[in-house]
Structure formats: C-alpha cells, structure tokens
Design a protein around this nucleic acid. Structure first.
Lengths: 139, 139
DNA sequence: AAAATTACTATTAAAACGATAGTGATAATT
DNA sequence: AATTATCACTATCGTTTTAATAGTAATTTT
C-alpha cells in the first residue's frame, strides 16, 4: 500500500504516466535540462517559458523526490545549486522526442536540426542522452 | 497575429505542444478513444478514470474545436453522440505509445501484449491506427 | 404515457497556477 | 573589512483550473 495508491487515478499505465507528467510544467522543466542544458534555479527562471519561482521550486522538489533529478552543489560554490537528470529522468527522453516531432509537424517547426531531419528515432534518442551526459558532470 | 500568440507560452515547439496536451485529461481522453474504443459521452464517463462530466464536456469541446476529434450522430439514433479521432488526433499516437512504454518500464507494466512485447515501434504505431480505423466508421 | 437513458449544464468547493515581493545565505566588489 | 550584488528560494494572494455533485432537456425504450 504505497502512496501511489492514492496518487494514481486508476490502474491504466498511460493514465498513471500522466498522473506524474501530465501537467503544464513537469515536462517543460525536464526539456530545459535535457535539450537546453539548464541547471540552476536562475537558469530555469530566465528561460523563455517564464516559470514562476514558486512553481519552479515545487516542481524541482517533486522531481527530486521521485528520483528524476538530483540536486548538487559544486565544490567551489556553496551558493548555487545544480540540478541533474538521473537515469530515471533521462528515460523520459523518447516522450520528449515524440512531443518535439509532433509539434514540428503539427504546431510549429523546430529549429533543432537533429529533430527536424531525424531519420532514425532511436539514434536521435541515444545522441541526445550522450550529449546530455557529456555536458554534465557524470553522476 | 492568431489566437495562438496568446495561447502559447513561448516559441519552443515542445513547450507549445504541452500548451495543447500538457494537462491531466487531454491525452487520457485521446487514449480512451485510441486504445479502448470509447466513443460516447457515457462510455467516457464510465471509464476507470472517473472523469467528471464538466471536465469531459470541456475537453471534448476543445478537442473538437482544434480539430482533433469530430462529433457525429448515427442515422438511427438522434440522442447519442459519437466522437471520433481525426487524422490530426491520430497523429498523437506516437506520444501515447511512448508514454505507455515509459510507464510499462518505469511505473506499472501494461497488460496490452502489443505494447509489452513491442519490437518495432513504427509497426506498433501503424497497427494501432489500423485497428482504430477498422473499428470506427471511416470518416 | 411513463420510465429510463443519454448528453450534457450549473453550481460550488478545492486545488493548481501565476505574479510579485521579500528573505537569508553566499559571493564578489570596493 | 565592509558593502553590494547575486542566488535560491519562500510567502502571499489573486486568478484560473479542476473536481464532485446535482439537475435538466431531449430522446428512446418499455
């Protein structure tokens, strides 16, 4: 009898996924990390999405609690927190790729050439994760 | 200067996609149609998700307005409305597949054998759409 | 003709979102 | 060493969205 029993609307896996990521901000925060290398509270705050600090704070706490991200201070700075995606957080990459592709074809074309010219989705998936890992400290 | 300028938070394609489908119910309704062949208001209302009628009404209207679904009465019944996914609505299939796969591996395993044992995502994609079309009146 | 069903709308309470101001700690500057 | 600036938030409060429930009108069934 985990907290999940209260958290999830029903037993459907898709609906349960949406109980976690089905809101206005959760996937946006993950996208900012994954595709735009945003790491600090300030960087998130200054993004084009203009996320309010109270909402940002809430999402980061929740994402940390469910193990999608981790918070770390770098040794030379005791002020700035850095947030990183965990493997669990990175596992949402295919969902974000499909949202990007869907938007590209149905809402507005993406600038990102990797996405616009994608031939092999799985290759893109691996490339995005590789790039993310190479640009962040390995955890 | 479309209404979209007010609707979208920013120019990011992923975020714009989430301006449309990033809430608790929109993708659930589409899933009910696509994977569970729900068509009428009553069928949606009786689903495991227990969607409130006011929310359901609101989502169906919005989805119709943006061209993801159409509402039709069958010739022999003037009371019951039937909702069908359009091609635009069906274009979200890959997003739902990835949510299902993600949930299967990270939240709770799916019953659906097609999804649990998927080898080729694109094949699954085509199969789901084929099945949907075969079970609904072609529009 | 009466009862049941369907597709909603209306209402009101609760939760989430959003804008803005403010605080405490650390870091940078003078 | 003192002052200023920056960063990471929290607090507050008004607005919007969501949720639970009751109710209504039209149609269909009995």
């Amino acid at each position: 009898m985990s907290i999940f029993n209260k958290f999830f609307r029903c037993t459907c896996p898709v609906t349960s996924a949406l109980d976690i990521v089905g809101d206005k901000w959760t996937l946006v925060v993950i996208k900012l990390m994954l595709l735009e290398q945003k790491k600090t509270f300030k960087e998130f705050s200054e993004s084009d999405e203009s996320i309010a600090p109270s909402i940002l704070s809430n999402r980061l706490k929740t994402l940390e609690k469910i193990g999608f991200i981790v918070k770390q201070k770098l040794p030379d700075n005791q002020k700035t927190n850095h947030y990183f995606l965990t493997e669990k957080g990175l596992s949402l990459t295919p969902v974000i790729i499909e949202l990007a592709l869907w938007s590209h074809h149905n809402i507005k074309p993406v600038d990102n050439q990797d996405i616009a010219n994608v031939k092999d989705k799985n290759e893109l998936h691996l490339a995005i994760i590789e790039r993310y890992k190479s640009k962040t400290v390995t955890l």
